[in-house]
Each structure stands twice: as structure tokens, then as C-alpha cells.
Design a protein around this nucleic acid. Structure first.
Length: 864
RNA sequence: GCGGGCGUGGCGAAAUGGUAGACGCAACGGACUUAAAAUCCGUUGGGCGUAAGCCCGUGCUGGUUCGAGUCCAGCCGCCCGCACCA
């Protein structure tokens, strides 16, 4: 290697990728002599190309996987494909290509792209959820769960496009209209399959407390999502009728402030009113045009319809409350009916102002006169330092005491029941679509719902389908649908709903432990590998995917497939990859490569030379064209450069700004590493050089830097602070570049050995981040082993602390100077040195020193 | 609307309640070169000052503390999720 040679990333990277593959370096095995470590990144949807979000995700995981490997763990690091889902059907419709062909083509391409990244993946375990070899086991799990009562069927609402005659996903509903037809979307009731996730609500909530290596905010989000509340179910007598209206509330203390009742449009009583009252029917229909998402409901203008019905206030003789149907009450939560207390709930207040209903404050700040306290445009939400008022026998009580009193009084007369309620709803898993896992049941007129016998699994999707008609092609495929009932033998029909793709992703990590087993999971393998030690993915999955997976493990445990509850011991949520956005004069989005810097530094369109409007940086998305293709970056600079850039600068949990200059900085560092090792390798001692003890002189100085860097990088990797690990490596390279040994020419044996240790260490530290460069330099340094098989260097504790410290001196909190002292200098000596400092004396002047605060090895503050 | 987060130089950022801006990028000055690229050296939060040094500065307004980017309260802006996108 001559010093004129530049590092050839493309050649070197494919060389080492072939070596790792042929030696099966990263194939996992259940080694009983080693601790195991299961690293998993969220598997990708095979959209066709990898994007920068994938590059970031898999780089983070690969650093951990390679680092843990070097630390002596038996590592499992697999990869697969979340391969069912809507886009394949859209492609089928738009491009006349079969979903399977489209999906497997995309997988083939993305596999190549991922392989070019040099990830330490065990490709022998690859799986795709759309493959019958995967979903037949999922069908087995579904049968078992059905038997256990964990899956059931009931009616629920879907978004219905009345023109296309098809069910729409929430994202396909835009401003209340179907995305293709433009027709106003209706809600429609269908019989659908549900997972009984609410059966585990308490356990899913309780167990969050033990997930110590999860981000606290994710645990909080899940906790709020499950939304356990302790409240009261109250019965209100409906005036002039025999029946009652049931209401769930957590604010029964505010009952004397109640001024109306509100029913969900789907409440049976609302339906009853609608049957006789055209206005009510029209209002209910309007509610049904709102779409099914909670967001749509919550952000819509609050509206109601007065049914004319009234209920009796439970404590105020003769007081009656009007009953409205309201568009903001959810049938799925509580009893689908509420009492409205406008003074202490913003939504109720807005509603009351609109329909001119009374607003009576019943919770008032302590020490305030209840007659003078009023609520105007903002509901009063405080519950501490308050007392009840305008509330008869509750007056003067705290919120808690008032709740107790109301609950006691109502339960004793059978008009109330203390109830624990959850916001969490059962998981609706039916999809009226082709490209998903078939639900293995048969509908028989005589026997009802009959599970497909296990021996008949898998129920495979038929290949011969077309997408020219709207709706689910399975409904039209009579040859596939018609089967004899396994029970009575009569002609019957298959279920045509397929499963939500969240089901596929709720257990794939378990399947990775034994991907070719003839049962869903092999107990020996799963007991060895699970749980996943480090799971890595986007924050957007903080609730649903993770909660469903946690449920699935519990359900599989109940079906005796495995013996644990929690799938992910450690979780890391990464930020997004962002890029500036560009638009031309007409507002059309432009790709980054269509934009260049003009001579005056302003951005112009490459072809036309016209000015370009540079927008703020946003998450990379195809629709805004602010995307950079990973393959072109890897093709130009190599995977190591892309990986290094991903790890530098931005902390991984935060959004990362993709910049060309950042990439070229990473590229320059690759070259710098290469040159540095090239220049110094002949000065370094032999591979087996023995470092000499002691921390003095040029060798000692270098060894100190080496061991400090090992300790820092190791700690930063363990804590997912890769940007800091990178910064430490930069500092170390700066140190190495500027290091002057004790003698020029032939180094002393101490210097040569220290340099050998330093170069080896540098390459080892960089290895998990830039594995190809690491492997190449390892070879250049004369090693005959693979870096990938080399243990992580151990640091020597006595070398990592500096002997002297710099101590800042403040006068009244303002820095006035620094002093250099031996570490752990006596407090009195520090104090004297601080007070002797020229500028400090000047700042103090002739004022009296009241106090001197000395923080050892840190700072001195002179208080005047 | 509800729930969760984030906000520090020109930019990405660092900082167990203890010297704000490590490290990188960009920019500027210099060396090398016929020239460019590459590389190397230096400067770089703002203001004042020849200098020593001083003043200001972590989204905004307050509070706690000897000391606040960090803790507390309220606001502003942006991002993620809201159950059929994955």
C-alpha cells in the first residue's frame, strides 16, 4: 500500500461482506456457555427501496449487535419483512401486478440494498409474513386463541365508501371523503373479529412498571392509552318512563353542577328516539358521516340534539336534566352516556354555552365565597386546594370526600356501582382485504362458526384474483370460498376477512428464534433467546405495535406456546431523518438533486436556473421529494460513510438532519483513518508487543488517552450516545495525529508498544460503526483474525483518571478565573488558592467574603 | 380536542444543579501547489477594549438556589400518536 492510495470503499466493502457471508460469521447459535443478547430492529415494510430511516434504524442496531458480540455475547440479530398490507393492493390496482409478485420483487431489491450496508445480520433466519410458511403458524395461534376465548366476533363500525363499495382505512378518508371516489364517507356496521386485549388490561398496565429499559415517555403513553379509571356507574331515572339511563363518571363529586345528559349517537336510547323523531334521526345520520377516528370526533365542532327526554337529578327533588344526543360522546367508552357538568369540563362548557344551559360551579378554590366564584369561558379544573360548594350536603368537602359520599349514598340505594373502567378497547383485527393472513374459520349454516382443522392449515390465499372490481376479491372467489363444513360436511363458506397486519408483527420476533420450526415457536429456542434484549424502532410505534405485541405474548402464554409475558426487555425509539424542502416558483416540490447553489449562494433550479424557495427541514417523504436515496450514497461513498454520518452529531433519539456536507465530513474521516493507520503502522510495535507499565512519558501519555477513550466509548455505546462516542473517537484521532513520541526515528520499545496498542484499539473502537474499514485496517495492522471475531479491548482503570483538575472560581456566581490543582486537593488548600487568584481578588475588591463554597474537583464559589 | 415529547452559536450538538458551546460541519486567514483537488496550521456566540478584562447570551415570563441550559409554575412554537398506514 503506497501512501498515495486512497481507500476504495466499494471494493473493500463487498470483499468483507463476502468473507462474513462465506464464514457464516453472523449466524446465531444457542451457545450454552455464553450469555445471549437478542438485538432487533423493527422489520421493514417492503415498499421497494430502503430509505434513510431504515439506514439509521439498522445502523443503530448493528452497532449494538457488533459491540455485544465483541463483549462476548452470543448474539441473535435477524431480519425479515412485514409483507402484508395495503400498498401491495394499491399497486395491484394501479399497475396490474399481483400483490405477491410486487411484494417479493420489492423484498429481493431491498435485501440487496440491506446487504450492501454490511449489517451483522443472520440472513439464514429471514422470514416474510406473507409467506405461507409464516402465516400457517399464525393461523394455528389464531385457532388456539379462539379456543381460549381470546378472539370473538361482534359488530363494529367501519368507514364505508358508498361509491367504491369498499371499506376505507382512516388514512384513506380525507376531510370526510373517500380518497379515490371523493364521496362522503359513511359509517357502516359490520360483523368483525376482535382480540380480547381488555382481558389483560390490568396486567398490561401493571407490568409497565417493570420495563426499566423502556423510555419513560413510552410507558406513560401506554399507561394513558390503557387509561384505567376508578369511577361510578350511576342510574338516572328517565322522567315518565320506567327505565333508567346508565352513566359512567369519574367526577361524581360534581353531580350538583350537572346541567344536561349526553348520549352517543350509537346509544340504544338515541336509536329509539331517532325511530320516532326525524330531527334526531337526521342528527344521528350526521354523526355517522363523521368517520370512525377519535381524532375526527374530538376535533369536530361540539353539537347536540335535544331529545325532549328528561332525567331526574338523584339528589334534588323535582330537578330534571335534559337529555341530548351529542357528537362527542363515544359509545365505546363507559356506557356511551355522560352527565354534563359545564363548570368543570371544557367540552361540557362549550356545549352548555352553545345550547344556553346553566353553568353552576360546584368546586371552588379554598377560601373563596361560592356565591362570588363564577366560571366564564374556561372550565375550572383544579382538584386540590378546593372545596365543594353549591352542593347541599357536600358543601365544604374535598373532591375525594365528596366522591366517597356520593358513591356511598348511591350504592346503598342501588342507584350506583363503583366501577373500574378502561379507555383501552378490544383490538378489531378484521380487514375486508385480500393481501393479509386469512382467518382460518368456516361459516356453516347449521354449525355456525367452525374452526378450520389444524391438519388443513395453512388456509392459503388463492393466487387467481383480480383487482378490477372494488371490494375484497376473496368475496368474489367462490371456488376458494366454498368448502364442506369440517363438522357436518354440509356446503359452507370460508371467512373472507383477513387479519390486521399488526397481528403479523405481534410475534415475528418470537418466530425468529426458530424460523423453520414446524410449530409456531420451538420452546428450547425461545427460552434461550427471548425476550428481545434491545428493540429499536420509531417512536410512532410507541403505543399500538408495542402494546399488541405485549398482549400477544400473554395470549400465547395462555395457549401454552411460551412461558413469559414481556417481549422487549429494552426499547429504544429513534428520531426521524429530515431534509430541507425545495419548491419552484409555482410551488411544485423539487428533489434535492434538482437544486444547486448559484454563484451568489442562492439556491436555483439546476435545469432552468430559476430561483428555488428553500423550506424548513422536514421528515423525508416522497410526497415532498425531500429524499436522498441510500443506495446512491452507498454507491458513491460506501456504507461505512453513510453509517458513520448516521451516528455522528445527532443523538439517536432526536431527529437527524441529512446534509451533503455532513456526508462529506464522514467521508473525509474514513480517508483520515486510512491515512493515519497507513502512516503509523510501520512505527508501531509487532502484533504481540507487550505494553509497559507506568503512565509517564510519551508512552504513558498515549496509553492514558487510549484507555480513557476505551472507557468513554464503551460507556457511550451502552447508553446509546453514539454521537458522543463518535466525538471521543475524533478527539482520540486528533491526539494520535499530534502525538510526538519520546524519540524520533526508531521508537523506544515502550513508545512502539503504546502505539501498537493505540492503533489496534482505534480500529476496534471504530469496528462496530464502520465494520468494513475496521476489518480492512485490522488486516493492514497485521492481524490474521477477523475483527468481527475479536473481543472488545479492556481498559485499565488506573489509567483513566487525570492527575490534575481545572477548577473554576466564581465570585457571586460569576466565573472570574480557573486554577489547575492536583486531583483531590484538600478543601482548605483549594480555598486558599482560589482566594489568591489575581482576578478573583480584584473582583472581590474590598467587600467582605461571607462564605466560600468548595465543590471538590469542580468549582469554588466566593459568596459576598 | 386529548395524550407524549422537543426548543442551546451560521448549522448538527456537548454540558452527575457547579468553568455554557466538547466534537463535527460551514465560514474566514495562512502553508503546500503553475493551478485546482486533497492535506496541514490557525481563527470563529454577540458586543466593548491595544490588552488584561468587562457586559450580554441556552424559545418567552416569573420562581427556587451560594450557583439554573438543567429543578418548579405559566405561556409560545414545532414534532409524534389518537385504535383500518406501516
Amino acid at each position: 500500500m503506497s501512501s498515495a492510495t486512497r481507500y476504495n470503499a466499494q471494493e473493500t466493502e463487498s470483499k468483507w461482506q463476502e468473507v462474513w457471508a462465506s464464514r457464516r460469521t453472523f449466524e446465531a447459535c444457542e451457545d450454552p456457555d455464553k450469555p445471549k443478547y437478542y438485538v432487533l430492529e423493527m422489520f421493514p415494510y417492503p415498499s421497494g427501496r430502503i430509505h434513510m430511516g431504515h439506514v439509521r434504524n439498522y445502523t443503530l442496531g448493528d452497532v449494538i449487535a457488533r459491540f455485544k458480540r465483541a463483549k462476548g455475547f452470543s448474539v441473535l440479530h435477524p431480519m425479515g419483512w412485514d409483507a402484508f398490507g395495503l400498498p401491495a393492493e394499491n399497486a395491484a390496482r394501479d399497475q396490474k401486478i399481483h400483490p405477491a409478485e410486487w411484494t417479493y420483487g420489492n423484498i429481493a431489491n431491498m435485501r440487496d440494498e440491506l446487504k450492501a450496508m454490511g449489517l451483522s445480520l443472520d440472513w439464514s433466519r429471514e422470514l416474510a409474513t406473507c409467506h405461507p410458511g409464516y402465516y400457517e403458524h399464525q393461523q394455528k395461534l389464531i385457532l388456539d386463541m379462539f379456543e381460549q376465548g381470546l378472539i370473538y366476533r361482534r359488530e363494529s363500525w367501519v368507514n364505508w365508501d358508498p361509491v367504491d363499495h369498499t371499506v376505507l382505512a382512516n388514512e384513506q378518508v380525507i376531510d370526510g371523503r373517500g380518497w379515490r371516489s371523493g364521496a362522503l364517507v359513511e359509517k357502516r356496521k359490520l360483523s368483525q373479529w376482535f382480540f380480547r386485549i381488555t382481558a389483560f388490561a390490568d396486567d398490561l398496565l401493571e407490568a409497565l412498571g417493570d420495563l426499566e429499559r423502556w423510555p419513560p415517555q413510552v410507558r406513560t403513553m401506554q399507561q394513558n392509552w390503557i387509561g384505567r379509571s376508578e369511577g361510578l356507574t350511576m342510574s338516572f331515572e328517565i322522567c315518565g318512563r320506567e327505565d333508567t339511563l346508565e352513566v359512567y363518571t369519574t367526577r361524581h363529586d360534581t353531580i350538583f353542577g350537572a346541567s344536561f345528559m349526553a348520549l352517543s349517537a350509537d346509544h340504544p336510547l338515541a336509536g329509539e328516539v331517532g325511530d320516532q323523531d326525524e330531527g334526531a334521526a337526521e342528527f344521528i345520520a350526521e354523526c355517522h358521516r363523521m368517520g370512525t377516528s377519535e381524532e375526527a370526533i374530538e376535533t369536530a365542532e361540539k353539537k347536540g340534539y335535544n331529545t325532549g327526554l328528561r332525567v331526574a337529578h338523584p339528589f334534588l327533588e323535582g330537578k330534571e336534566l335534559p337529555v341530548y344526543i351529542a357528537n362527542f360522546v363515544l359509545m365505546e367508552y363507559g356506557t356511551g352516556a355522560i352527565f354534563g357538568c359545564p363548570a368543570h369540563d371544557q367540552r361540557d362548557l362549550d356545549f352548555a354555552r352553545k345550547y344556553e344551559l346553566p353553568v353552576v360551579p360546584v368546586v371552588i378554590p379554598s377560601g373563596t365565597d361560592s356565591a362570588s366564584f363564577s366560571v366564564e369561558d374556561e372550565a375550572y379544573l383544579e382538584t386540590s386546594d378546593v372545596v365543594l360548594g353549591n352542593s347541599e350536603f357536600l358543601d365544604g368537602l374535598s373532591v375525594e370526600a365528596a366522591k366517597e359520599e356520593i358513591a356511598n349514598r348511591l350504592t346503598s340505594v342501588g342507584k350506583g356501582e363503583r366501577t373500574v373502567n378502561y379507555r383501552l378497547r378490544d383490538w378489531g383485527a378484521s380487514r375486508q382485504r385480500y393481501w393479509g393472513c386469512p382467518i382460518p374459520v368456516i361459516h356453516c349454516e347449521a354449525c355456525g362458526i367452525v374452526p378450520v382443522p389444524e391438519t388443513d392449515l395453512p388456509v392459503e390465499l388463492p393466487d387467481d384474483v383480480t383487482f378490477d372490481k372494488p371490494g375484497n376479491p376473496l368475496d368474489e372467489h367462490m371456488a376458494w370460498r366454498q368448502v364442506d363444513c369440517p363438522n357436518c360436511g354440509q356446503p359452507s363458506l370460508r371467512e373472507t376477512d383477513t387479519l390486521d397486519t399488526f397481528v403479523d408483527s405481534s410475534w415475528y420476533f418470537a418466530r425468529f428464534c426458530s424460523p423453520r420450526a414446524e410449530i409456531p415457536v420451538d420452546r428450547t429456542a425461545i427460552d434461550y433467546w427471548m425476550p428481545v434484549d434491545q428493540y429499536i424502532g420509531g417512536i410512532e410505534h410507541a403505543i399500538l405495535h408495542l402494546l399488541y405485541s405485549r398482549f400477544f405474548m400473554r395470549a400465547m402464554k395462555q395457549c401454552s406456546h411460551l412461558g413469559f409475558d414481556e417481549p422487549f426487555a429494552g426499547l429504544f425509539t429513534q428520531g426521524m431523518v429530515c431534509h430541507e424542502t425545495y419548491r419552484d416558483g409555482e410551488g411544485n416540490w423539487l428533489y434535492p438533486e434538482e437544486v444547486s447553489q448559484g454563484s451568489d449562494g442562492k439556491s436555483v433550479h439546476v435545469e432552468s436556473g430559476l430561483p428555488v424557495v428553500v423550506g424548513r427541514s422536514e421528515s423525508m417523504s416522497k410526497s415532498k421529494k425531500n429524499v436522498v436515496d441510500p443506495s446512491s450514497i452507498i454507491g458513491r461513498f460506501g456504507a461505512d460513510t453513510a453509517r458513520w454520518f448516521m451516528l455522528s452529531d445527532s443523538p439517536p433519539e432526536r431527529d437527524l438532519e441529512w446534509t451533503d456536507s455532513g456526508v462529506s465530513g464522514a467521508w473525509r474521516f474514513v480517508q483520515r483513518m486510512w491515512r493515519l493507520v497507513d502512516e503509523l503502522k510501520d512505527l508501531a510495535g509487532p502484533v504481540d508487543a507487550v505494553v509497559q507499565d507506568g503512565s509517564v512519558g510519551s508512552a504513558g501519555e498515549l496509553r492514558r488517552a487510549t484507555h480513557q477513550t476505551i472507557a468513554a466509548v464503551e460507556e457511550d455505546i451502552e447508553a446509546f450516545r453514539f454521537n458522543k462516542a463518535v466525538a471521543r473517537i475524533y478527539e482520540y484521532v486528533n491526539t494520535l495525529g499530534g502525538w510526538s513520541p519520546g524519540q524520533a526515528g526508531d521508537l523506544s520499545s515502550a513508545d512502539a508498544a503504546a502505539l501498537r496498542e493505540a492503533l489496534d484499539t482505534l480500529v476496534q473502537l471504530v469496528g462496530p460503526m464502520m465494520p468494513h474499514l475496521g476489518e480492512e485496517l485490522w488486516q493492514v495492522l497485521g492481524h490474521e483474525t477477523l475483527l468481527a471475531d475479536t473481543p472488545w479491548p479492556a481498559f485499565e482503570a488506573e489509567l483513566i483518571e487525570d492527575e490534575s483538575v481545572t477548577i473554576g472560581i466564581q465570585v457571586s456566581g460569576k466565573l472570574r478565573g480557573t486554577i489547575e490543582l492536583a486531583r483531590d486537593t484538600e478543601e482548605e488548600a483549594v480555598r486558599e488558592a482560589a482566594l489568591a487568584h489575581d482576578n478573583v481578588r480584584k473582583s472581590i475588591g474590598d467587600r467582605a467574603v461571607r462564605k466560600v463554597i468548595v465543590v471538590p474537583n469542580r468549582i469554588v464559589n466566593v459568596v459576598l
